[in-house]
């Protein structure tokens, strides 16, 4: 039975919820065995695109495994996603565009917008479950304060 748009949408939303919860094992289950992940933006200063994080599947898995060893922000991130478009490329791939807002809540309870951007995802739709094979987090926001060792 072909993967439906609803299943693809749910995949994107689950990726947000699981990353919000910092449940990295469950989050990585949503990705194909081989995938790529980038956080990118257009630098007005350089007048070129740039990647602020650029990893393959092994590097990304290690990055998440290393998070507990680091001084990560004491607050929490919440990702608000809205799937704008699903474009199918035959019966194997779908390209998904998702609007993304990331909020940061401090341990004291104050919340602010951390970043705004889009997910540009390529989804494998050949199996029983859809899986992310490529995710580009394209940020409009380029001033992200303290930054984050957690991906977006």
């Amino acid at each position: 039975m072909p993967i439906s748009d609803e299943q693809i949408t749910r995949l994107i939303y689950r990726s947000c919820l699981r990353l919000d919860a910092e449940d990295f094992d469950a989050y990585l289950e949503l990705f194909a065995p081989e995938f790529a992940y980038r956080i990118s933006n257009y630098s007005v200063e350089m007048r070129k695109d740039q990647n602020w994080l650029d990893v393959n599947q092994d590097e990304y898995r290690a990055l998440l495994a290393n998070v507990p060893l680091h001084s990560k922000p004491l607050g929490t991130f919440a990702r608000h996603a809205n799937v704008y478009d699903i474009e199918r490329n035959g019966e194997t791939r779908a390209k998904v565009t998702t609007f993304l807002t990331v909020y940061y809540t401090t341990p004291e309870g104050g919340t602010s917008v951390f970043a705004v951007g889009k997910y540009f995802d390529e989804i494998d739709i050949t199996g029983e479950q859809s899986l992310i094979v490529d995710r580009e987090v394209r940020l409009d926001t380029r001033e992200v304060g303290i930054g984050s060792i957690l991906p977006m």
């Binding site: 602020w52 994080l53 990055l63 001084s71 930054g147 984050s148 060792i149 977006m152």
Partner: peptide, 27 residues
Amino acid sequence: RRQRAKEFTQVWGPFSRNAAEDVAFVE
């Protein structure tokens, strides 16, 4: 160029493993 940028952002930049910690130290 992409490989150099990739190695740069391992240590530096807002989503790196070091620089965000440095900002936290100062704040």
